[in-house]
Design a protein around this nucleic acid. Structure first.
Lengths: 232, 232
DNA sequence: CTTTACTATACAACTATACAACTTTTAATT
DNA sequence: AATTAAAAGTTGTATAGTTGTATAGTAAAG
């Protein structure tokens, strides 16, 4: 087998072992050619294969960069799961894990600005991108304000559509908090990632045009596949 | 007598007369074929005989290189690459293939007697004798104990000198293990030998006067050109 | 008739070298 | 501290030269 192909395989192995991480630079062509004991053009040929596969791309004068295939999930004033994904020509899907109606906790009541005696609706969903589960969301919604929410959501599988039916034509983020967590075994299983894989966790409130909170929610994103793009 | 054999004898005579010196290139096949007034394939046949004898080695795209016969590499209590070669009136040279800082593997930590959480410095080098690459070494050194090792080594290109600068005036072998391996295509290219050529592999630990391990390393020698001389 | 030695030609794979275009780093200057 | 200029380093491109390999053909020897 030709040398350039073997080097290609060697580099591909390093890439899959995460020796070179998405967004980072590879060693320069000169360094690589010395490492493998071949001419620079031979290295270039190996690299070309990886560029053709979309794994690498190069910038003249700068270097060779590992392509970041992570989905860019936009977080701005209006965050819409399905629309976010459709905009990038991917296929979204939402499945419901569970729902529950119970009394609000103190924090939930505070964030939804409701009385803590009131009941809330809890919905947990998994969001899939091109059939790969990558997003888990836990929503808290006032059951007093939206008693039919779950019935409608179950059919629509969309927060935006459900709220529209309930007369809320627009809503937007009051705030968003981003933290990092490690996946436990249950989450890892749900999100098709490894145990201890880093997860991005967002905690946020969506409110309507009258600034009244609609939902107090938390969303976990698989860090290996999704990056959050914050907008202003 | 056939033409190719006469050319072979003529070339062999030139080689023994040191007309072409170890590490240097022969004239290209095209030049030789014109010189002898024969087709290139005839020259190739003559050269093949010399390659089979291990006297010549060819590198596609580069040329045909003169090799030397077996070098006696001494392995005793103190093994010093450059000194070993200088003692036999040959010219040593060291080039760096790559370096890497990462966490120690279990075996590395055990052999260096360090905590497996500590970071190690990995250095891969090629050792040349009279300009012929014949020795490849992979070293593992505690990055915690010698944080500046690579910077110094990069300039000195000598373990002995680097350690002296770092305050280690002497070091010696704790043990040496010798095994045999076959060259894969990448190693073959680096070491100017054929694929599947036998390599002598030594695995060893160098320690300081206080018996504390300094490096846990492995060295590959091209079996066709180097023989190990064990001393006590 | 088959084998061997040699020629002829063509192309693929790899090296060597040089320079252009561009970016990043370094140093000097203000 | 900020700006600017020079230097060094990176990828892109072009050209020529080298060995490896495949195919086809010719001539001589057994």
């Amino acid at each position: 087998m030709s040398i350039y192909y073997q080097i290609y395989e060697s580099l591909k192995k390093d890439l899959s072992n995460n020796l070179y991480k998405p967004g980072e630079k590879l060693p320069s062509e000169n360094v690589l050619s010395k490492r493998f004991g071949v001419n620079r053009h031979t290295i270039r040929r190996s690299l070309q294969l990886l560029k053709d596969e979309g794994i690498l791309f190069s910038k003249r004068g700068s270097g060779i960069i590992v392509h970041d295939n992570r989905f860019k999930y936009k977080i701005g004033k209006r965050v819409r799961f399905s629309q976010n994904i459709l905009n990038e020509n991917y296929v979204p899907e939402t499945t419901i894990l569970r729902s529950e109606i119970r009394k609000a906790s103190k924090i939930e009541a505070k964030n939804l600005e409701i009385n803590s005696k009131h009941e809330i609706l809890l919905i947990e969903t998994i969001g899939k991108i091109n059939n790969v589960p990558s997003i888990k969301t836990k929503r808290i919604i006032s059951n007093k304000r939206f008693p039919d929410f779950f019935d409608i959501f179950q059919k629509q599988l969309s927060i935006t559509k459900t709220l529209k039916i309930l007369g809320v034509n627009d809503f937007f983020r009051k705030n968003t908090l981003v933290t990092a967590e490690q996946a436990d075994s249950i989450q890892a299983n749900l999100l098709h990632c490894k145990i201890n894989s880093p997860l991005l966790k967002t905690t946020y409130i969506n409110q309507d045009l009258n600034l009244i909170p609609i939902e107090y929610s938390q969303t976990w994103f698989v860090g290996e596949r999704i990056q959050l793009a914050l907008e202003n």
